[in-house]
Computed example of a mutant assay.
Amino acid sequence: MKKYINTILFDADDTLWENEIFFRQTEQEFCLLLEKFGSKEVILKTLLKSEIETLPIYGFGIKGFMLSMIDTALQLGGENLKSNIISRIMELGKEQLRRPVKVYEGVEDVLNSLQYSYRLVLATKGDPTDQKRKIEASGLKPYFSHIEIMPDKTTRNYEELLKNIDCCPNEIIMVGNSVKSDILPILQLGGRGIYIPCHTTWIHETAECPQESPYFKQIQNFTQIPEILQTMTELNHKSA
C-alpha cells in the first residue's frame, strides 16, 4: 500500500543558512599567504586535491579544510615555509569556526508554517561539534523532531537515517542545495527532492540535475517550498 508524504528532510548548510561563502573567503586569504609559492590556480588545485584525498580521514567540515590548507602549504612551500604561515592558517580556521550563523530570509517563517502539517527532520553532514554549534546558534532547532549529523550523504547514510526515524522513502521529500548529496541519493531510494541552488557551491558537490521528473523540482527561493509541496503531495495522493 502506498503512503502519503508526511516527512520533510532539510539540509542545513547553504540551505537554511550561509556557509560555503566563508570557505571561498578563507581560500582567498590562503592564496595571498602562499602567493610566493605558486599561482592562485596552482594553490587552489593543490588544496582541492588534498581535501578530496583526505575526506575519508578528516571528513567534511572546517577542521578538515584547515588541515588540508596546512598540507597544501607544506607541499608548495617545503623547507621555505615559515612557521608564522602555519600559525596564520590555524587562525583562519578558528576565525571561520567563530563565524556567526546567518539564517536565510524566510526560512523560519516557512519552517513554522510546515511544522503543523509535516514531521520536519534536519539531515546534515560534517564535523558534529561545528554542526551542533551552528544548529544551536541558528535558533531553528525547535522546529525539528529529529536531527541527524551524518559523516556523508550516500544512499547508505540515508537508509540509516530513514531507519532511525522509522520512515519509508516514498513518505519523504528532501530539500537541499546539493544535487549530489541532497537530491540524487534520495531519488535513488524512491523519495522526492526539492533543489534550491546556492550562489556558491563547492566543486566536489556539483552534479547534473536529474531529467525532468514529477519527483524532482527546482526552485529559486526557500519561500517557494509550501507551494511546490502542495503540487508534489497532490501527485503522491493520485498515485496512491
Rank of each mutant, 00 (worst) to 15 (best):
E29I: 09
T223Y: 02
D109A: 15
E212C: 09
P128G: 07
T154V: 14
T200Q: 15
Y104D: 02
R119T: 12
L34V: 08
C198S: 15
N80R: 11
Y116N: 13
G176K: 02
Y118P: 05
Q115C: 15
T7Q: 03
D182I: 11
E160F: 08
E20Y: 09
L32W: 05
A73Y: 00
Q28P: 01
D152R: 04
P214L: 12
T54Y: 10
C198L: 11
G38E: 07
F30E: 03
I194A: 00
P56S: 05
I165M: 00
C209M: 14
E227I: 10
R88L: 11
E53F: 04
R88N: 07
T46R: 06
N236L: 10
S117L: 12
E18M: 10
Y195A: 05
L34H: 07
G191A: 07
L92R: 01
I173N: 02
M69F: 07
K125Y: 00
F10C: 07
K36C: 13
I52G: 01
L44E: 13
K238Q: 11
N112D: 01
S83G: 03
E108N: 11
R192W: 03
D152N: 06
Y58V: 08
H237R: 09
G61M: 09
L34S: 02
K94T: 03
Q75V: 07
S113K: 12
F144G: 04
K102C: 12
M66A: 03
L161D: 01
E160Y: 10
L9H: 01
T231C: 08
Q211T: 14
K134D: 00
V121R: 00
A137H: 06
V42N: 05
K180C: 05
G93V: 14
D109C: 03
K45V: 04
L47F: 15
D71R: 09
Q25M: 09
T46N: 13
P197W: 04
V103F: 11
E35M: 08
Y4R: 11
Q96Y: 06
I147H: 01
V175G: 02
P185Y: 01
E205P: 06
S117K: 11
L229R: 11
I172H: 07
P226E: 10
F65Y: 12
I186P: 05
I194T: 01
Y158P: 05
I165C: 05
H199R: 14
I62S: 01
G38H: 10
T231F: 07
V179I: 15
Q211D: 15
M90G: 10
L74F: 10
K36G: 04
L33A: 00
L235S: 08
C167Q: 07
S113D: 09
E108M: 14
I225D: 08
N177W: 07
P56I: 02
I219K: 11
